[in-house]
Design a protein around this nucleic acid. Sequence first.
DNA 1: TTGGAGTCAATAGG
DNA 2: CCTATTGACTCCAA
Length: 386
Amino acid sequence: APESPLSSAEESVKSLGEPATQPPASEPSDPPESLAPAPLPVPGHSGLSIQEMVAMSPELDTYVITKKVKEVLTDNNLGQRLFGETILGLTQGSVSDLLARPKPWHKLSLKGREPFVRMQLWLSDPRNVEKLMDMKRLEKKAYMKRRHSSVSESQSVEAGGETSQGSSPQHQQHQLKKPRVVLAPEEKEALKRAYQQKPYPSPKTIEELASQLNLKTSTVINWFHNYRSRIRRELFIEEIQAAAGEGSSPSARGGKAGEGDSCDGTESDGTVEGRPGPASGSEEYRGVSEGGGADPGEAREEASAEVPSGTLASQDIPTSALSPPGTSSHKGGAIGSLFSFPETAPPGTRNPRDSSLRKKKAANLNNIIHRLEKAASREEPSEWEF
DNA sequence: TTGGAGTCAATAGG
DNA sequence: CCTATTGACTCCAA
């Protein structure tokens, strides 16, 4: 793992304040979309490209950063779309995802760290909010203008006003717009069950699943890719929480795990308690303890994935780099100051984002098993039809 | 080719 | 409007 060299770059990052970055009097007119092509809003240009900054960046606490960003955005009524498109160069959905479940810094690729560096940069800009609000205003103005002109000019003199703006009444032509597959909850259930059994299904299995569920093979493949990826991410989050929960209460088992239905807990979140207030009464972290079998009234463990005999049962989850809580005491030099902000809120304000896993862990074991088998025996004891 | 990481973009709820 | 979810895609490395 390429540890962040965190070389205290003595690069004189001089102007942090950053001169007004509004050179191109970008006229706010572009009805369609104008995603930042390449020269993204690369703000804090101190001669360094974001990529360079990412490379030099010391370890950042993605959790703290996102928490802060969310706070600032909500406090100022700034949306994720605006923030994402103008500051991060990402779409709303991506921003939502990023803010909701940031992966720990050490698990991010260089590319993946970029948004966080941008966020940190943005947070350190004393006028970040002001600038964004300006952008917001500009957009609204442009919108109004556009809307107005279309009414005054176009033949559309419809009363009542603006029904669906006929963006492009092109008769859905060849309907080449793929409808977007929406899996039925039962289909997802089936897929999850299959995942419990085999996180890495063979192409043959995939075919079977596809035909059984009446789905395209590619859909099944994509589903597994996405599911694995998302499960993995949740595990990261649990890791973070476990590490964050450090001191204080040894935590009380968060009981409540049985789902009414066998629905796996992907949805997770027993996130009760939502009061915006910092109150947060019950901490309820998920102890990462792994109980032997004894689990009182645990939800059905269903899937009897007993492929390999119990031998592997003792397999230990790859608790890969559990970031030791105190290791990240960075203090870069020049840039350091840039990256280290007030560091507020050590207060126990934690987000009880808990998830009923266990199944995930079980699946994770299967995952490991899968890899072991693969490594051990070159070929699958079956498959390979020709 | 296969799997992982990042994203996009449609869409479901507020 | 806004945010969260999620199937599909792109890029990359092994």
